[in-house]
Write a protein that binds this DNA or RNA. Structure first.
Lengths: 203, 203
DNA sequence: CGGGAAATTCATCTAGCGTTGAGTTCAACA
DNA sequence: TGTTGAACTCAACGCTAGATGAATTTCCCG
């Protein structure tokens, strides 16, 4: 007679399995749609164990989102180099993140962010503190213009991520990333550094 | 003793009240977050009445999304006129829709679309059949390029809507719409009609 | 006036959720 | 070897959700 209860022998990486299952569940279903029970099943584990490791569903979600999203990489990569190609480098680094292993977590983030109020607020503050306050000083822009310039560029990138990775509308979803770099790079460049007649009072 | 049950005298516009309550509930909370019970309370009505009128929550959501979203208006408005200002007119019409009375429904759409799989799929097909297949012929573009051009522009507009109306990140959320027209209009124009070196093989 | 149909509510069913606490097994250390 | 604590499961609680069917009231048409 096999006893199923109690400590499992061997593998101590159950925690990682739960995290992985949570990531893909959140990415597919969003925060509300992903249930702890389903995540536990996906990890081959009892639902209570999820709470044992992570406490609440909120904390599990935050743990899922924690490591993979650090836009500082993108920002530094894009701002290192000559100023005339910031746009292209920004788009390239952005796309590489979404196509990389952390992309699923980013999809989960975007999916969940929109669903409920507290995640939206969380994301807004994340954008402000992690993106705006970090990107603005590195760009050497007029402080009066910087925020609008950066949010213009960011809105474009968010829309790109939505269309390509969440909604998956063709042909945008399948086009090579370098094509998108060529198309969108100049736009981002314009938003960040070039003159925007009609937007800011002419200097 | 007042009997509360039975048919209400007078006003037969309860159905519209439910629809209105559903629209704002979906806009605020998203599909999952909005409960039929809350919608019913918001309309001053019993939850069962919602089912009496709309059957299931899915159908209520579809009914909510049905009438108010007809991008054909935006498309015709933008494509009527000289070809060099399509971009500006597109952005202007787009923003006017979001700021108008049907904007709440649009926010609801965007909020809910991303949350669950079936709404995402629904939205993708909506984009293809209602936007792409209608906008492409009116633009007089090379058919080989048209889809990518339109989805590029659409992704930008979706991102704008997300940033301004859903996430509400400043200063983008409060800036006058004409400022955004001036900033984004030229980009949309470029995506739709101008040369995109590196994107399409040079003609 | 009378009767059917629509509008509306009530009470209730079932299912799923997040969460909890008690209990069981294993591994490591003294 | 004995004890401690971490890993893990079981069973259950309390809650909320969407949905249903019967009952009640009103309107409208003949």
């Amino acid at each position: 007679m096999v006893r199923r209860t109690g400590r499992r022998p061997g593998n101590p990486d159950t925690r990682e399995a739960i995290l992985a299952a949570a990531r893909s569940a959140f990415a597919e279903k969003g925060y509300d749609g992903a249930s702890i029970r389903a995540i536990a099943t996906g990890a081959g584990v009892d639902p209570a164990l999820v709470h044992h490791y992570f406490g609440t569903k909120d904390k599990l979600f935050l743990a899922t989102m924690n490591s993979p999203i650090d836009p500082i990489d993108i920002i530094t990569e894009a701002t290192d180099g000559d100023r005339d190609e910031i746009g292209v480098r920004f788009v390239r680094a952005f796309l590489r993140m979404w196509d990389g292993p952390r992309g699923a977590a980013a999809v989960a983030l975007l999916r969940s962010v929109v669903g409920t109020e507290w995640t939206t607020k969380l994301f807004r503050e994340f954008i402000i503190t992690q993106v705006l306050r970090r990107a603005v000083p590195r760009l050497g822009l007029d402080p009066a213009e910087a925020s609008l310039r950066v949010t213009l560029a960011a809105s474009h990138l968010v829309g790109l991520a939505m269309a390509r990775y969440v909604i998956k509308v063709e042909p945008l979803a399948s086009v090579p990333s370098e094509t998108l770099v060529a198309a969108i790079g100049p736009t981002v460049q314009r938003y960040l550094t070039e003159d925007l007649p009609g937007v800011f009072p002419e200097a």
